[in-house]
Protein backbone atom coordinates (compact mmCIF):
# COMPACT_ATOMS: atom_id res chain seq x y z
CA UNK A 1 0.00 0.00 0.00
CA UNK A 2 1.20 3.32 -0.79
CA UNK A 3 0.53 6.09 1.62
CA UNK A 4 0.72 9.32 -0.09
CA UNK A 5 1.40 12.23 2.09
CA UNK A 6 -0.81 15.02 1.13
CA UNK A 7 0.88 18.28 0.90
CA UNK A 8 -1.07 20.80 2.91
CA UNK A 9 -1.53 24.25 1.79
CA UNK A 10 -0.68 27.01 4.23
CA UNK A 11 -3.85 28.30 5.82
CA UNK A 12 -4.52 31.81 4.74
CA UNK A 13 -6.96 34.24 6.16
CA UNK A 14 -8.33 36.42 3.54
CA UNK A 15 -7.20 39.85 4.61
CA UNK A 16 -8.69 41.91 1.89
CA UNK A 17 -11.73 42.87 3.92
CA UNK A 18 -9.70 44.03 6.88
CA UNK A 19 -9.42 47.49 5.44
CA UNK A 20 -13.20 47.63 5.08
CA UNK A 21 -13.73 46.62 8.68
CA UNK A 22 -11.19 49.13 9.87
CA UNK A 23 -12.82 51.83 7.77
CA UNK A 24 -16.20 51.06 9.27
CA UNK A 25 -14.84 51.37 12.80
CA UNK A 26 -12.95 54.47 11.85
CA UNK A 27 -16.06 56.14 10.53
CA UNK A 28 -17.98 55.18 13.67
CA UNK A 29 -15.40 56.80 15.93
CA UNK A 30 -15.06 59.78 13.62
CA UNK A 31 -18.75 60.44 13.94
CA UNK A 32 -18.96 59.91 17.68
CA UNK A 33 -15.89 61.94 18.58
CA UNK A 34 -16.53 65.41 19.82
CA UNK A 35 -13.32 67.28 20.18
CA UNK A 36 -14.74 69.88 22.47
CA UNK A 37 -12.11 71.81 24.27
CA UNK A 38 -13.27 72.97 27.62
CA UNK A 39 -12.91 76.68 27.91
CA UNK A 40 -13.72 79.01 30.73
CA UNK A 41 -12.54 81.62 33.18
CA UNK A 42 -10.21 80.11 35.73
CA UNK A 43 -10.38 81.28 39.33
CA UNK A 44 -8.97 80.22 42.65
CA UNK A 45 -11.30 80.43 45.63
CA UNK A 46 -9.94 81.66 48.93
CA UNK A 47 -9.86 79.28 51.87
CA UNK A 48 -12.88 79.51 54.17
CA UNK A 49 -12.75 82.46 56.51
CA UNK A 50 -12.24 81.81 60.17
CA UNK A 51 -15.06 83.70 61.93
CA UNK A 52 -12.80 84.78 64.81
CA UNK A 53 -10.08 86.01 62.56
CA UNK A 54 -10.27 89.60 61.44
CA UNK A 55 -9.89 90.17 57.72
CA UNK A 56 -6.48 91.61 56.91
CA UNK A 57 -6.40 95.39 56.72
CA UNK A 58 -6.51 96.77 53.20
CA UNK A 59 -5.86 100.35 52.36
CA UNK A 60 -8.84 101.98 50.79
CA UNK A 61 -6.95 103.27 47.77
CA UNK A 62 -5.80 99.76 46.83
CA UNK A 63 -9.30 98.43 46.69
CA UNK A 64 -11.56 98.82 43.68
CA UNK A 65 -15.10 97.95 44.58
CA UNK A 66 -17.30 96.95 41.71
CA UNK A 67 -20.96 96.55 42.50
CA UNK A 68 -23.30 95.03 39.96
CA UNK A 69 -27.04 94.90 40.54
CA UNK A 70 -29.51 92.52 39.02
CA UNK A 71 -30.24 94.86 36.12
CA UNK A 72 -26.61 94.92 35.12
CA UNK A 73 -25.93 98.46 36.33
CA UNK A 74 -22.41 98.98 37.59
CA UNK A 75 -20.94 101.05 40.37
CA UNK A 76 -17.18 101.42 40.56
CA UNK A 77 -16.03 102.99 43.80
CA UNK A 78 -19.47 104.57 44.24
CA UNK A 79 -19.51 105.98 40.73
CA UNK A 80 -21.99 104.69 38.16
CA UNK A 81 -20.25 103.56 34.98
CA UNK A 82 -21.27 101.63 31.92
CA UNK A 83 -19.98 98.11 31.33
CA UNK A 84 -17.83 99.20 28.39
CA UNK A 85 -15.95 101.68 30.58
CA UNK A 86 -15.05 99.15 33.24
CA UNK A 87 -11.98 97.79 31.51
CA UNK A 88 -10.31 101.14 30.88
CA UNK A 89 -11.08 102.32 34.39
CA UNK A 90 -9.60 99.18 35.84
CA UNK A 91 -6.43 99.50 33.78
CA UNK A 92 -6.05 103.05 35.00
CA UNK A 93 -6.69 101.96 38.58
CA UNK A 94 -4.24 99.06 38.52
CA UNK A 95 -1.36 100.66 36.66
CA UNK A 96 -1.90 104.19 38.02
CA UNK A 97 0.44 105.88 35.53
CA UNK A 98 0.13 109.35 37.08
CA UNK A 99 0.56 108.16 40.66
CA UNK A 100 -2.85 109.42 41.58
CA UNK A 101 -3.43 109.47 45.32
CA UNK A 102 -6.74 107.68 45.01
CA UNK A 103 -5.65 104.81 42.81
CA UNK A 104 -3.61 101.74 43.65
CA UNK A 105 -0.11 102.26 45.07
CA UNK A 106 1.38 99.59 42.83
CA UNK A 107 -0.13 97.02 40.46
CA UNK A 108 0.65 94.15 42.79
CA UNK A 109 -1.16 95.81 45.68
CA UNK A 110 -4.34 96.43 43.70
CA UNK A 111 -7.35 94.37 44.67
CA UNK A 112 -10.50 94.18 42.62
CA UNK A 113 -13.59 93.34 44.60
CA UNK A 114 -16.62 92.18 42.69
CA UNK A 115 -19.95 92.18 44.41
CA UNK A 116 -23.33 91.34 43.00
CA UNK A 117 -26.81 90.71 44.25
CA UNK A 118 -28.23 87.26 44.69
CA UNK A 119 -30.71 87.94 41.89
CA UNK A 120 -28.05 88.96 39.39
CA UNK A 121 -28.13 86.64 36.39
CA UNK A 122 -25.02 84.56 35.92
CA UNK A 123 -24.34 86.01 32.48
CA UNK A 124 -24.04 89.54 33.88
CA UNK A 125 -21.63 88.33 36.54
CA UNK A 126 -19.51 86.56 33.92
CA UNK A 127 -19.55 89.65 31.71
CA UNK A 128 -18.12 91.68 34.58
CA UNK A 129 -15.53 89.04 35.41
CA UNK A 130 -14.63 88.96 31.73
CA UNK A 131 -13.97 92.70 31.79
CA UNK A 132 -11.72 92.35 34.81
CA UNK A 133 -9.84 89.52 33.13
CA UNK A 134 -9.54 91.61 29.97
CA UNK A 135 -7.98 94.46 31.94
CA UNK A 136 -5.38 92.15 33.46
CA UNK A 137 -4.71 90.52 30.11
CA UNK A 138 -4.04 93.90 28.49
CA UNK A 139 -1.70 94.92 31.29
CA UNK A 140 0.19 91.65 31.19
CA UNK A 141 0.45 91.78 27.42
CA UNK A 142 1.81 95.31 27.55
CA UNK A 143 4.39 94.39 30.19
CA UNK A 144 5.40 91.28 28.30
CA UNK A 145 5.74 93.17 25.03
CA UNK A 146 7.95 95.87 26.51
CA UNK A 147 10.16 93.36 28.35
CA UNK A 148 10.35 90.45 25.95
CA UNK A 149 8.79 91.69 22.72
CA UNK A 150 6.07 89.05 22.63
CA UNK A 151 2.55 88.94 24.08
CA UNK A 152 2.02 87.19 27.38
CA UNK A 153 0.40 84.16 25.80
CA UNK A 154 3.45 83.56 23.62
CA UNK A 155 5.72 83.06 26.62
CA UNK A 156 6.47 79.49 27.64
CA UNK A 157 4.09 78.32 30.36
CA UNK A 158 5.56 78.59 33.86
CA UNK A 159 8.80 80.03 32.52
CA UNK A 160 10.64 82.59 34.70
CA UNK A 161 9.56 85.30 32.28
CA UNK A 162 5.91 84.41 32.67
CA UNK A 163 6.29 84.20 36.43
CA UNK A 164 7.84 87.64 36.48
CA UNK A 165 4.97 89.18 34.52
CA UNK A 166 2.51 87.38 36.75
CA UNK A 167 4.19 88.82 39.83
CA UNK A 168 4.03 92.29 38.35
CA UNK A 169 0.29 92.01 37.77
CA UNK A 170 -1.13 89.37 40.09
CA UNK A 171 -4.82 88.81 39.65
CA UNK A 172 -6.21 89.73 43.04
CA UNK A 173 -9.91 89.39 42.54
CA UNK A 174 -12.22 89.08 45.46
CA UNK A 175 -15.71 87.76 44.93
CA UNK A 176 -17.76 89.24 47.73
CA UNK A 177 -20.78 87.51 49.13
CA UNK A 178 -24.07 89.15 48.24
CA UNK A 179 -25.91 90.74 51.15
CA UNK A 180 -29.49 90.08 50.24
Amino acid sequence: MMLKKKKREGADINGSSMADIAFLLLIFFLVTTTINVDTGIGMVLPPPLDPEQEPPPIRERNLMKILVNSQGLVLMDEEPVSVSEVKDKLIEFISNPESNEELAISPDAAIVSLKTQRETPYSIYIDMLDEVMAAYKDLRDAASRSNYGVPYDALVDDSPQQDQIREMYPKKISIAEPDS
Binding site: D38, G40, I41, G42, M43, V44, L45, P46, P47, P48, T116, Q117, R118, E119, T120, P121, Y122, Y125, I126, L129, I175, E177, P178
Partner: peptide
Protein backbone atom coordinates in the same frame (compact mmCIF):
# COMPACT_ATOMS: atom_id res chain seq x y z
CA UNK B 1 -29.13 83.55 39.66
CA UNK B 2 -25.86 84.35 41.29
CA UNK B 3 -27.13 83.44 44.75
CA UNK B 4 -27.15 79.72 44.09
CA UNK B 5 -23.63 79.93 42.73
CA UNK B 6 -22.47 81.64 45.91
CA UNK B 7 -23.96 78.87 48.03
CA UNK B 8 -22.20 76.25 45.94
CA UNK B 9 -18.94 78.17 46.07
CA UNK B 10 -19.18 78.36 49.85
CA UNK B 11 -19.51 74.59 49.94
CA UNK B 12 -16.53 74.24 47.65
CA UNK B 13 -14.48 76.40 49.98
CA UNK B 14 -15.41 74.14 52.86
CA UNK B 15 -14.48 71.07 50.82
CA UNK B 16 -11.12 72.59 49.98
CA UNK B 17 -11.56 72.48 46.23
CA UNK B 18 -10.29 75.94 45.45
CA UNK B 19 -9.45 75.68 41.77
CA UNK B 20 -12.59 76.43 39.85
CA UNK B 21 -13.43 77.33 36.31
CA UNK B 22 -16.49 79.15 35.06
Amino acid sequence: EFGLLTDVQKELQQAGTFRINY
